[in-house]
Each structure stands twice: as C-alpha cells, then as structure tokens.
Nucleic acid binder design. Structure first.
Lengths: 217, 217, 217, 217
DNA sequence: AATGAATGAGTTTTCATTCAT
DNA sequence: GATGAATGAAAACTCATTCAT
C-alpha cells in the first residue's frame, strides 16, 4: 500500500494531481478526496501540506502567475534596449510557450479567474493589476516610440489577451471540434505566426513606415 | 404562504436566479438552495420544474445556443445573396449584441464549456459541431468568391472566436481592471469596430483588390 | 392525455397499481408517485380517493383479510355438520385457491405483516386474533370429536400457517430457484395434496382409527 | 466529543443497530439517521464504514448466509459417513438454532428476500442457488440410499423451508398471538420435535422399513 | 511525515400531502 | 371527479477538515 518510489515528493504529486483534476472538472467540481485518490495519498495529507483545499488553489495561482508576470516584466525592462514591437512579440511568444508547456494549469487558471469567488479574487486581483501595468507599458512605450500605431490601448490589450488565452482555455474544444492541439509544440509556432501577423497589420506596419519616413527626413 | 404576485412565472424566475448565480459562482459553486433562495421558492420547486439541477443547466445551454446558432445560420443562408465578408461581419455584430444583452448567460456558458463534465459535453458537442459547420461555411464561401483572402480557416476561426467570447467570459476582469463594460450598448459598437478592422486587414483587403483587378480585366 | 376508457373506475385502477407495486417493492419501497404513474393518474388523485398512502394500505388489508377470514368462518360454522378434518382440509383448499388467485396481494400482505410499523399492527392485530380464534376452533373441535389426534395446537397451527403462506410469500424464489409457479392453478392442486398428506399423517390417521374403534364398540 | 469507550468497535455497533432496526421496520422503513442515532454515531460514519446504506444491507446478507450455507454444506459432506435422514435432521437443528440465536437478523433476511429490489436479488440469487443445491443433495442422496421415501423433492423442500423460516419471519405474530417465543432456547427444542416428526412421517418411516426388509433379506 | 477514524455542515433529491381550481 | 402547482420535511450522501497517533 505504501508508495515505493517517493522520489517525487508527496507535495509535488499532490499538486500535479490537483492541477489535472482542476483542469478537467474545475475547482468546485473537484474534491480533496479525488485529489488524494489520484495522488495516492490520504486526504489528510493534503491538509497537512497545503493547509486545506484553498491552499492548493493558491499554490496553483502562484505557479502560474509568477512565471507569467516575469515574462512580461522581462520584456518591459527590455523596452530600454529593444524596439517595442519586438518586445511585444517576444512576450507573446514566451507566454504562448509557457502556456503550452503548462496547458492544464493554464486552462484551469483562466477559467477560474472568471469566477466570482471572493477568495479567488483576493488572490488574483494583484496579479491582474500587475499584468495590466506591464501590458500597458508594452503598448504605450511602443506608441511613444512610433514603433506602434497610435490607438486606444484597452481594446488592443483585450484582443491580444483573448488570443493568448483562448486556445488554452478552450483547448478541449479545439481538440475535439477543430482537431488542433494546443499542447503540441508545433501548434504554438503556427499560432504565434497568426498573432504576429495581427500585430504587424493592426499595430506596426504603418507606424514603422511613419518612422521610416521620419528617419528619412 | 402562497405567492401573491406570480406575474412572472415561477419557472422563469428560477431560471433567472440560476443564470445569475451560475454566472457569478459557476455551476458547481452554486447550490440548488442558493437558487431557490434567490428565486424565493422552495428548493423542491426547482426539481419540480427542471427535474433537478442538471435540468437547469440544460435549459441554460438551450437558451444560449439556440439563438446563437440561429444568427450564424441566417448569415450562412444569406451567403447566396450577399457578399461573404458582409455576412461574416453581420454575424459578428449579431453575436456581440446577443451576448451583450445576455452577458451573464454568455459568461457562464463559455466558462462551463471548458469543463470536462461528461454530461455537459454530451449536451454541448452537437451545438459546437453546428457552430463549426456554419463558421467554416462563412469563411470558405468567402474565399471561394474571392471576397476573403485565401488562408487556412481553422486559425482564423479560433482567433475570431477568441475575440467574440473573451470580453464576456472575462467581463469582470474587464470591468475591474480595464474599466470596460461589455454589457453596455456602446461597448459592443466600439468593440465591433475592432473586429471589423481585424476582418478587413487580415481577410478582406487583398481579396477585394484582387477581385477589383479581375473585374477590370 | 385523458383516459378514454374509464370503464374500470379510477379508484380500482389505483388499487391495482398499488397492489402490484407493493408486491414488488414493498410498502415503504413504493411511492405514491410510482402508484400514480402506473395507474396513469395524478398523485393528488390517490389522496383524493384513499386519503393518503396509509389509506391504500388499509384497503389492501381489508381486501385480503375479509375473504380470508370468511373462509375460515364458513368452515368453523360447518363444524356442526361436517367432520373437523374435512372442514380443515376445505379451509386449507379455499385459502390456497384464494391466495393463488390473489398472489400479488398475498405476498405483500404476509410480508408486511412481519413489519413492526405501529400503524400496520393496529390494523392487523384484530384480524390475526380472529384468525387465531377460527384456527383453534378448527383444531380443537376436531380433537374433541376425535377426528384429530390430540396434541398441542399451537405448534400445529404454526406449521400449517407456514405451509399456507410460504409459497406465496416467497413466490419469486419458488419461480426462479425451484421452477414452481404458485399463481398457476395446477400448483395449488399439487401443493394441496402435500398439505393433505401432512394433515392425514400428523393429525388424522390415528384419530380416525381411534374413532373407528370407538364406533365399532 | 470523542467516544471514550470504543470497546465494541464502531463498525460492529453500527451493524447491530442496523440489524435491530431492519428487523423491526424493514430496510426501506429504516433511515441511516435512525441507525446512526441508535448506534450513537454520526450518520456520516455509516457511509464511512459501509459505503452507504446498501453496504449495510450487503453485510447483513453475508452475516446470515455464510453460516447458514456452511451448516448445509457440512451435512452434505457428512452424507458420505452418516445416513441421510440423520444428516437432514442435524441440518434442520443447526439452522433452527442459528436462527434462534440470530432471530432479528433471520426475520429481516427472510422478509427482505421477498422484495424485488434489483440490488437485493443480485446479492441473494447466488446464495439461494447454493441453498437449492445442498437441499436437493440432502434429499436425493437420502432417497438413493433408501433412507428417505421416494417422492418429488421440490414440494418437500418448499414445505421444509416454510417450517424453517416461518417462526422467525413471523416471530412477532407468534409472540403476540400465539404466546410462543422463537428466540427462547426451549422453543427450538420443541419446534424441532415437530419437524422431526414431519420428517419421520412423510419421509423416513416407510423408507426405513423398506430398508429393514431389504436388510433382512 | 503521514494517516485512519470520525464528524458537522451542507449537498441534491424525493416524498406525501395540500390547496385552489 | 380530478388535477397542476407548490411545499415542508426528510431522505441518502458527500465534503473538507480535525485530531490522536
């Protein structure tokens, strides 16, 4: 009955089990006993390590948002040395790759974000405010530098965020209805190209031309 | 003990209460008792009318997908008389408007669609297959008529669907983080322009030019 | 939706449905809605006619015990004119036949009799006291007349009652395990012979011989 | 809040409480809350140990049929060394004694056996088939050895089973109407004599006589 | 470090019944 | 005579958590 191979720490295996089940059935649709069974541990062990179901949820958010925000932050910092459109594109690519590599966690996070549980919101709101800050910087700096076409930022960010999250949020729909597989490495390469094109068409092209003209003069 | 004002039918008021609570807390996060309390009826009444919590869920899906698919179907049928890019845009507008008017239901639906409850999927899959069919028709007919630029359809549909659903799915994030209000009538007008622009840039422009050239010759 | 043929009164069809379901699933295992569905009436109708589930139960007991006790009573009265062993045998036969013709009701009654519901017992106890009275008379008169061998009555009655009720109480077991069919007319003929033999061997034979001797002298 | 005296294991005390209540009110007439209250535990504890009300029922069947069938099996095996009529009688006595010592369980079992719950039947049918097998062996071997009179087995078994179960099934009727007490040790001794007599008269006597004659010759 | 026993609170659903019509 | 709407009560069960070990 005892686990023979405890190479992977108990805590980690609980986390993995939780992510998988949250991904499939949602937070409210998953019971600690489900997690315990899948991780092959006693339910009490989960409370022991995570101090309750809530704690597992918080761990999930941390595991997602910390890398996610780091990618944005890196590119915002790079704005000082690299043109904004490039930074934006690199951020997009990193985020797509990260989500693809953690597609279960991603789907779960973006779904749960849309639930009005008071607890979730307390955890999340600061993350989202940071995201907003970085996103805005990326776009606004670009416009200031004429790397990006001037236009209201909000709608653009919404559109971009839509495209960044949707394939992972509705991954199963993509798989079953559209035969696309967001967790495969080649998917993000292709999908990235589409967003790249979107950035070029809506944001960059004219701006760059304007910039070129200005440079000529 | 009896209700005096049964102007709005009991069944309807249960449905409304359910939609609101599902929208806020998700299906699994909402109890029958919550719904009953909000609709000011006895919990048993819900089973009486909907034959269980499940039944309420099914009613939600029906209420959403039946109009939703009708809009798509209408425009697919219009393809015979009207240019594809226009049909596409009209479908987009109708869907945005419908979702805006039913933003609670919309958010809930698109969130729940991403949950792997076996029951949900049985209900949903046929709806989604129909959606796929109509969407493909709209794009492919357009390309055949040279109204739309030739390119792989799947990624376009995914992008479009992203943009159509996301503002409603993450409405609360939009409100709290971005001060945008998807349920307001002016939002969709503005947001529609962005998608319109996306269609023009990514899909139409060149195709129409090609068409013009062909017409000249 | 309305019943076309109301030839058989609603009340009767409710009763029939109830007997069938009680027979199969027991009183507590049957809901008024089950009965209503089977009788194709509204559940309220049952309360209307029988004044509640309880009332249906009482009707069942009446329908069973009134004929049942009448058969016993008839033979007790016949004791004045006919020899006791014959009366006993005739009672046995009548009861077997009656139960065979009402095997569903019989099974249900004998099962329910063994349940300590306070309500059931109030209804039943007077019936059972009457049964005891008649049974004792049948045996004791027989012994007084030397038609039956003298011996403690109680055990005999218990044995007889066992044999009278068991095939109907465990009818389904008889069917499935022993391929015997207590509701078929030929079954009771055969089964009667066995009880007849039992009566002859345990009760009559010696007594009759004694009687014969007495008559001779 | 914790129980101080867990001398009798919790599981066992739940089982005892359940048997008592099932005996009195039947399975469907007993709620888990009733059991929990009687066993002085939390209702959830019952699901914890028995995995639901159903599980308690199954435990009851096991506790009854395993010894019951063992007694039969023992005597069937003894057929090789001991005359069939003796084996039969010993089986009868063992079963009577066992039922007397477990009269609550016995009554409940024989009553519930007569209910057409699909679940009950799945559990039971294999037990009953085994019972049939042993019973037939006991009778048929006896007839082959001329220890028992030749005659159709089925009816005999039915009669025997009737007499074996009835006093326990209708124990309360026996007590209240006939002032007999099947759970008292002296009852089974007396009752056994009656069955013994039945066996001798219907089955053995002639056969033994035949056998004696054969031995003489 | 990890668990088995046990629970209080809460889940959905079913039940028998009532009452206006 | 018969019913549809509605319900209070109770059913079985599940849940996250605790605590002694």
């Amino acid at each position: 009955m005892k686990k023979l191979d405890t190479s992977k720490s108990t805590k980690e295996s609980i986390f993995k089990a939780a992510v998988y089940l949250f991904y499939d059935h949602g937070f409210d649709g998953t019971s600690v006993r489900d997690i315990a069974k899948r991780a092959d541990v006693n339910p009490a062990t989960i409370s022991y390590y995570f101090k309750g179901k809530q704690g597992v949820l918080e761990a999930c958010f941390t595991h997602f948002f910390e890398p996610y925000l780091r990618f944005l932050q890196e590119e915002v910092e790079a704005l000082n040395y690299v043109s904004a459109d490039l930074c934006l594109k690199r951020a997009v690519y990193k985020i797509l790759k990260f989500q693809s590599e953690n597609h279960q966690l991603s789907r779960f996070i973006w779904r749960e974000v849309s639930i009005d549980s008071q607890v979730v919101r307390e955890i999340i709101s600061s993350y989202l405010m940071k995201e907003r800050h970085y996103m805005k910087r990326l776009f606004e700096q670009g416009m200031k530098d004429h790397a990006l076409k001037k236009q209201p930022v909000s709608f653009l960010v919404i559109q971009l965020k839509s495209m960044l999250t949707m394939p992972f949020l509705h991954s199963q729909q993509l798989r079953e209805v559209w035969q696309m597989f967001p967790q495969e490495y080649y998917f993000i390469d292709q999908y990235y190209k589409n967003i790249d094109q979107w950035i070029d068409l809506l944001l960059v092209s004219e701006a760059k031309e304007v910039m070129k003209k200005e440079l000529i003069i």
